[in-house]
Design a protein around this nucleic acid. Structure first.
Ligand SMILES: [Zn+2]
Ligand SMILES: [Zn+2]
Ligand SMILES: [Zn+2]
Ligand SMILES: [Zn+2]
Lengths: 175, 175
DNA sequence: TGCGGTAGTGTTACTGTATAACAGATTATT
DNA sequence: AATAATCTGTTATACAGTAACACTACCGCA
């Protein structure tokens, strides 16, 4: 028996116990994928869980290290392919400035207020503590679309990553 | 005589003939560096010339390949150090989505309408033809600053890279 | 006129990020 | 079963970026 990814009754070997909020997000993601005609396989689920668990952006190789604990044979393509899928489904985003990945804060909303795929978003990145926050500011995305139109461009996607100092670090450096 | 390739009167060996607009931009950059107490050395000048010559963003290793024609011993640090300098001086920008570098369209303005260093800017990138255009839209940078402030962040720098389709490609795909 | 400091470059080696290409396995679909 | 489509394993490689140290040129100065 060469069971590739048996995910039967009691769950596959190498499966860990996950926090309730992560489990819930995974279920929502699963439903969302099914609705989109895509499959959230065991591998993809594992990678998504790792991203969901982390409170900060994770690089592909950091992710790979963690994944190896559950899937010893994992190699770069293993994680990159899973990440590509999750990006396509809008379940995660990439932070270009950090070459790292975060779960989409809106993906948890099963009702998919953005139709299930991609949505305009921006990142705020603190240079001091690394805190990375996803926002979805309409004034920004409107201004971006308009600026593109002015130059004759049809905007499809905008990477907006704002670096600076978060409230906490600002306070800490003043006292 | 080990002349790299024919050079004019009093120029260094390995010097190539440059278009007038590039030569002019180099002179402006030189003046600007001098004013800032920095030196646009031969190496830095060569790298800047390569970026200026290109009509599209160039990756560091593409740049390295070109540089080797004039400077056979060149290695990654050679080009990265030059690029770091040029970035600091605001003479070039990095396009994060492409891991590539372009000359700043405003750096040619010797009067340095932004004080000589850095300035808020955005990129428009055509997915079809690769055309990359730098703009400096105040509505965008204002919206970005405001969005950051709303979340308690003090914005220092914003990467804004808008992907889509340029006017030319849009027209081509409709006829 | 020898010294010490700074800045720039050469050189080697390495870490980190991402993809190509091919092989095997799984799951519908017919 | 045959087929095609999709997913994963595996190896190898390309592309991006940095660390560390050696060497030179230049400047100010005892
Ligand atoms: Zn999101
Ligand atoms: Zn912070
Ligand atoms: Zn610029
Ligand atoms: Zn185009």
């Amino acid at each position: 028996m060469a069971a590739g990814q048996g995910s039967a009754a009691g769950e596959a070997p190498g499966q860990r116990e996950l926090p309730a909020d992560v489990r819930h997000a995974l279920e929502a993601a699963d439903a969302r994928c099914t609705r989109a005609g895509a499959q959230l396989t065991a591998l993809r689920r594992q990678v998504l869980a790792l991203v969901l668990e982390s409170d900060q952006p994770l690089g592909a190789y950091a992710l790979l290290d963690k994944l190896k604990a559950q899937r010893p044979g994992a190699a770069p393509p293993t994680v990159y392919r899973a990440l590509d899928f999750l990006l396509e489904q809008g379940l995660i985003h990439k932070v270009e400035r950090l070459n790292a990945f975060v779960s989409c804060v809106e993906a948890g909303h099963d009702h998919a207020r953005h139709g299930g795929h991609h949505h305009p978003h921006q990142f705020l990145i603190c240079r001091d503590c690394g805190l990375t926050v996803e926002i979805s500011d309409h004034a920004v995305s409107d201004a971006v679309a308009e600026a593109a139109a002015k130059a004759g461009f049809t905007a499809v996607h905008a990477t907006v990553e704002i670096e600076g100092r978060c409230a906490g670090c600002t306070a800490a450096h003043q006292g």
